[in-house]
């Protein structure tokens, strides 16, 4: 994901009281002035704050959508009154921020990944740092995905390879094909259930945010670790289903 220029990842929302409108000097709302309606320079906020939302994961997507359309109309850079002005430039920046924020938050997975990034989790870096830790301690690296899933991925890949070889030899192994197809169905079900599992962690997260949004508790780390874990497993299964489909279609 490319970082939008005006969103400092992890930045705390600016206290609104300190911002007054550049045009009329009165207190302003996040994106445009409440008194005179002029667009304001983008403030460095995260996507949740951009929409005025708390950093919670259960989101009413229809309400988000309504707010998105509302804001996109008001922030539209082509409003003729703004043409050529500094205000138009800000509209442009705000609009692109709005689009990024909306696209990220409306998607349950992207939303979760985004929140995890705000929490300082680098999904891509994780594996490397675990390796470094294993090196330093002389231990075995803790695998990011559970061993039984790895085992499953490996076994299924063996079967897929066998299937490919059979096809090359023009042989048809109906039993093998059926077994793989069955496995695929099971994987798809697991894929679905992982979303439900993820949503249960959303609830835990949201409850924590309600109690204390700034808490540096171990619980906070635990919940985000559980979410990372689900996302990793889900990734594996998605790739696997994709490979199975490719093998069955060929």
């Amino acid at each position: 994901m490319t970082k939008p220029a005006f969103t400092e990842i992890g930045a705390k929302p600016l206290p609104l009281e300190t911002n007054s409108c550049w045009s009329c000097g009165s207190m302003r709302a996040a994106h445009f002035c409440e008194s005179c309606g002029k667009v304001q320079p983008p403030a460095p906020v995260d996507y949740f704050s951009f929409f005025g939302l708390p950093a919670k994961l259960t989101i009413e997507v229809p309400a988000l959508e309504t707010e998105f359309y509302h804001l996109s109309r008001k922030l539209h850079p082509d409003l003729s009154a703004r043409a050529g002005s500094q205000e138009q430039e800000w509209s442009l920046e705000q609009s692109s921020l709005l689009n990024d924020a909306y696209r990220t938050l409306r998607d349950p997975i992207k939303r979760t990944q985004y929140l995890l990034r705000l929490e300082g989790v680098e999904l891509e870096e994780q594996s490397k740092s675990a390796t470094e830790q294993a090196r330093a301690t002389g231990g075995v690296k803790k695998q990011i995905v559970p061993p039984d899933l790895l085992e499953e991925v490996f076994e299924l890949n063996m079967q897929l390879e066998e299937l490919k070889m059979n096809k090359q030899m023009q042989e048809d192994d109906a039993a093998l094909t059926a077994e793989i197809a069955k496995h695929k169905t099971a994987l798809e079900e697991k894929y679905e259930s992982l979303l439900q599992e993820l949503q249960s962690y959303w609830k835990e997260w949201d409850a924590l945010m309600e109690r204390n949004p700034r808490a540096e508790s171990p619980e906070r780390k635990q919940i985000s670790a559980k979410m990372v874990d689900v996302l990793n497993r889900r990734n594996y299964i998605r790739n696997l289903v994709r490979d199975v489909n490719a093998a069955l279609e060929n």
Partner: peptide, 13 residues
């Protein structure tokens, strides 16, 4: 040793 790369979903034994 059975390991996997979450980045790409590959496995290695």
């Amino acid at each position: 040793g059975l390991v996997g790369a979450p980045e790409c979903g590959d496995v290695m034994k």
